[in-house]
Computed example of a mutant assay.
Amino acid sequence: MFKNILIRFGELSLKGKNKMNFVNILAQNIRKICNVEYKDMIIQIDRIFIPFSAENINNLNYVFGISSFSPVIKIDSDLSTIETKLLSIDLDKYSSFKINCRRKWKEFPMNSMELNQHLGNLILTNKKNLKVKVKDADIEVNVEIHADFAYIFWEKIKGLGGLPVNSSGKVLHLLSGGIDSPVAALEMIKRGVKVNFLSFISPPHTDETTIKKIKMIVNELTKYQIESRLFLFNYTDLMNYIGLTSNQAYKIVLMRRSFYRIADNIAKKFQCLGISNGENLGQVASQTLEAMNTIHSQTTLPIYQPLLTNDKIETINKSEKFNLFQISTIKACETCEIFAPNHPATKPNNEVAIQLENELDMLKELEKKSLDENVELCYFNNKGNNKY
């Protein structure tokens, strides 16, 4: 019965003269995620049409930048054809209805209000069990009249909202196997950002389960952004060296300062416009304002923290909604967890951190060597054709 899927925009409707740039990026994302050809798409300034299929309906749930979408019946813009098709719809399971007509083709003999009244009376005459209900009707039947075709639809499926991926630049995201950082990455993707991932592993302390878990998370997130890069950084030598510090309370601070120096190098090499993370203010010792100030000073790039003020329950709910929670709660050994001291510094001082790094006089040299030798680059795409 359905011929097309009507796709509506959310925030894109607010864009000005560059709106079509966003629409074209959205169309490209839909094409890649839904496997449709451009020739089979109708791209307009306020909507996109693609061929109907159950697979396409499912795949649109992975496309950011869409406010809602509907399966539509496509017919000729002829009143008798519209009447016949309208009466063929199975309305017997409903007790109330509403008709909502839009005459976008101004040469059609009835205006929108007249068409509402005419088609409403038609249904009332032929469907005796139905009554009109302007608010909260069981079904709202929409009819749109265009010059070439008319569309009939009644189901409106909520989209993900946000902006189309690749419309807002690129960041490098610090990814762990926990709950927060995957959700934070998703929040960046929702705002149109293309996210590259950086994870620190420390074999043999972190095992294959840890690496597999990280890859599973990136694979799940790639469904929303089509392609991803994951930098797996072997941090074992650096972790062992930092462990020699004379102030054990600063171990995590020194390690995370090192993370940001490394991230800064990789981000700039791959033209990323910032570094993002899953930090949540006050959640752990390294996420106090003092700690973040001391740690983040190691990069000149902007740092984006979409979960900074989230309640933990908010983050868990989103993790569950997007099928990340089950992966994030797999038991594994995280680099930060196994390295954490019993009594970490919660209000570290930048000057003390610099002094301790000066004592570890081979630290910067080890970081440079590891950047050259200990980084594995993995590629992911939404078809599952991943390369490790």
Rank of each mutant, 00 (worst) to 15 (best):
T81Y: 07
K93R: 09
F97Y: 15
I57L: 02
C101H: 05
K74A: 08
S70L: 01
R102I: 13
W105F: 11
N59V: 01
F64Q: 02
K85F: 04
E83F: 04
I66P: 02
V63N: 13
N61K: 15
K93E: 12
S70E: 05
S96W: 13
K104D: 14
D92L: 12
F64G: 00
L79D: 04
S80P: 08
D92M: 09
L91I: 00
L79P: 04
Y94T: 03
F97T: 14
N59S: 07
S96A: 15
S88L: 06
L79Y: 13
L86C: 03
K98M: 15
E83H: 11
K85L: 07
R102D: 07
F97C: 15
F64M: 11
L79T: 05
S96V: 15
I73N: 01
P71L: 06
I66L: 05
L79S: 03
Y62R: 10
F97K: 05
D92N: 14
S80N: 14
I82W: 09
D92A: 11
V72R: 03
D78I: 12
R102C: 09
P71N: 10
T84F: 09
K93F: 07
F64S: 00
S80C: 12
N58V: 04
N61C: 12
K98Q: 14
K74G: 09
N61V: 08
I82G: 08
S77T: 15
L86Y: 03
